[in-house]
């Protein structure tokens, strides 16, 4: 008996078979990743590991997890202070009219250092602080100064960013700031005492 197959059916069957074969022959070949037993380190390896370990500051340094709003002060590998903080909201402010400027309220990532420490800091309000509240931006610089908004202390780390206090402690743990790092009153006092000017700050 001769079976006649339609060429289109044959082509379809071949295509399906080829696809199944290709899919069946694709994927990942997995093997457990078992580390080799550690050999005794060479003199060179010991030297390099010592140099690597020395990268961790022996003195106090600040590590800020801006995603989870957590701040730590560490000395070497020891954690001295753990605090809930607030980092940048990530929101965008667009100016109505005027110059049509916009600001993004992100906390910067990277390595910084405490440049200045202030007690009872005054806040020199930037333009966005007025625009956000629907207020005219003053021409007199003196009208920009506000006392009390930053809490008892501020640690300035550059580009207009600070670690400071807040009037809204109930919002700590949430990303609500304009880029600065806010701390509660007691944690801020402890960080201020523990961290001299020059203290490295690592923000991720």
């Amino acid at each position: 008996m001769i079976v006649r197959l339609h060429p289109a059916a044959v082509a379809a069957a071949l295509l399906v078979t080829a696809t199944v074969v290709v899919v069946a022959g694709s994927g990942y070949r997995e093997a457990p990743l078992v580390p080799a037993p550690a050999a005794a380190p060479s003199t060179e390896q010991k030297r390099l590991e010592k140099a690597l370990g020395a990268r961790i500051p022996a003195g106090p340094h600040i590590v800020i997890d801006q995603t989870h709003n957590r701040l730590e002060v560490r000395r070497g590998r020891e954690v001295l202070i753990t605090a809930v903080c607030s980092a940048g909201s990530g929101m965008v402010l667009r100016e109505n009219g005027g110059e049509g400027r916009s600001w993004v309220f992100d906390t910067p990532r990277g390595r910084y250092a405490v440049r200045t420490k202030l007690k009872n800091p005054a806040w020199r309000k930037p333009d966005w602080a007025f625009i956000e509240e629907g207020l005219p931006v003053p021409e007199d610089p003196g009208e920009r100064i506000e006392y009390g908004a930053l809490g008892d202390y501020a640690l300035y780390f550059g580009d207009g960013f600070m670690i400071h206090g807040t009037l809204y402690e109930r919002l700590l743990g949430r990303s609500v700031t304009h880029g600065c790092i806010r701390l509660g009153r007691d944690d801020l006092a402890a960080v201020y005492r523990a961290c001299p000017v020059g203290t490295p700050i690592f923000i991720f």
């Binding site: 694709s26 994927g27 990942y28 990743l33 690597l52 990268r55 961790i56 500051p57 590590v63 390595r111």
Partner: peptide, 22 residues
């Protein structure tokens, strides 16, 4: 960052998977 461990994530299982196509 800069030789400072910011976060540590321990893992319990590790495997190497090598891809193959057809």
């Amino acid at each position: 960052l800069g030789g400072v461990p910011l976060r540590t994530f321990p893992y319990t299982v590790a495997a190497v998977a090598s891809p193959r196509v057809a």
